[in-house]
Nucleic acid binder design. Structure first.
Length: 281
DNA sequence: CCGGTATGGTGAG
DNA sequence: TCACCCTACCGGT
């Protein structure tokens, strides 16, 4: 379930469990064995996230750079660590708790320069108080690329993944295939502010919920969504089902190799002024 | 058991 | 644009 809120939450929880403490590190699976041995017994200074990247800092300007990719997990558990189960690439242990990293696309030991470079290449992250949405706007406003594509580009905007992309575009009635340059500034500001709220809520609850109060299962008398990520959503992976708002059928298509979901009536196809004709049909 | 799929990203062509 | 990487889970055989 790794979108930006997952990594932000993970950094916070790693801090609580291990921050400022001397920890044991190991690589039961073996693929991070040399690095884990080098860090073993060092003080874990802090953990931080930027977009979907996680940096776990150890004394001596040493950082474990983690990216969970599509299927990675970093589970923190209270109690004494049992023998590792499955492919644990990195285990961090303290007396009180342990954390197991599995399936990550990236797990590298890097220095501060590399950490700064990775963070520096990211677009603004709605979860960071110092984020500047104008940096993203400057890219979006001059781009011919589809809005759905731009929102997923971590150099434009950091932390938004396939679920938040689909949902925030639905919430603002925006066609995902509409070119970035056709967006008005006010619309972008609203999208950004909404992402700030949605991601913060995701950090708080640990799940992705995007439906407004009037569209919750309780409010509408419909069954709750039973899914692997647990949250209530409007269109993500709801293709073929009815839209809660307008009752039309939610659609899906492929955009740059990722599944895209939208409601054709709530997010009508955008037509530029030029193709509309001078005075209607 | 096997194949398909997944909230992501990289590097080759 | 495609092949590929990481792991777990789910459905159909």
């Amino acid at each position: 379930m790794p979108e930006g809120h997952t990594l932000h939450r993970l950094a916070r929880d790693l801090d609580v469990a291990f921050g400022g403490r001397r920890v044991r590190t190991s690589s039961p699976q073996g693929r991070f064995a040399a690095e884990a041995a080098a860090l073993d017994g060092a003080v874990l200074v802090q953990a931080e996230s930027g977009g979907k990247h996680l940096f776990v800092e150890f004394v001596g300007d040493r950082f474990v750079h983690v990216h969970l990719g599509l299927i990675g997990k970093f589970d923190i558990t209270a109690g004494t660590a049992p023998p590792a189960v499955g492919a644990v690439r990195l285990r961090i242990e303290h007396e009180d708790s342990y954390a197991d990293l599995r399936g990550a696309i990236t797990c590298d030991l890097v220095g501060r320069a590399r950490r700064d470079q990775v963070i520096g290449e990211l677009g603004p992250d709605p979860l960071r108080a110092d984020a500047d949405p104008d940096r993203a706007w400057d890219r979006i406003r001059r781009s011919d690329r589809a809005l759905g594509d731009l929102l997923m580009d971590q150099k434009v905007l950091a932390g938004v993944g396939n679920v938040y992309r689909a949902e925030v575009l639905f919430r603002h009635r925006l066609d995902p295939r509409r070119p970035g340059r056709t967006l008005r500034r006010g619309q972008w500001v609203e999208v950004w502010e909404d992402l700030v709220c949605l991601l913060a809520e995701g950090v708080r609850t640990g799940r992705i919920d995007t439906v407004r109060p009037e569209h919750t299962p309780e409010a509408m008398g419909r069954p709750a969504r039973k899914d692997d990520h647990g949250g209530e959503v409007y269109v993500y992976r709801r293709d073929g089902q009815r839209c809660f708002v307008c009752d039309s059928v939610v659609r899906t298509s492929d955009l740059k190799g990722r599944n895209l979901f939208w409601c054709p009536r709530c997010q009508p196809t955008f037509r530029s002024r030029a193709t509309k004709g001078p005075s209607g049909p």
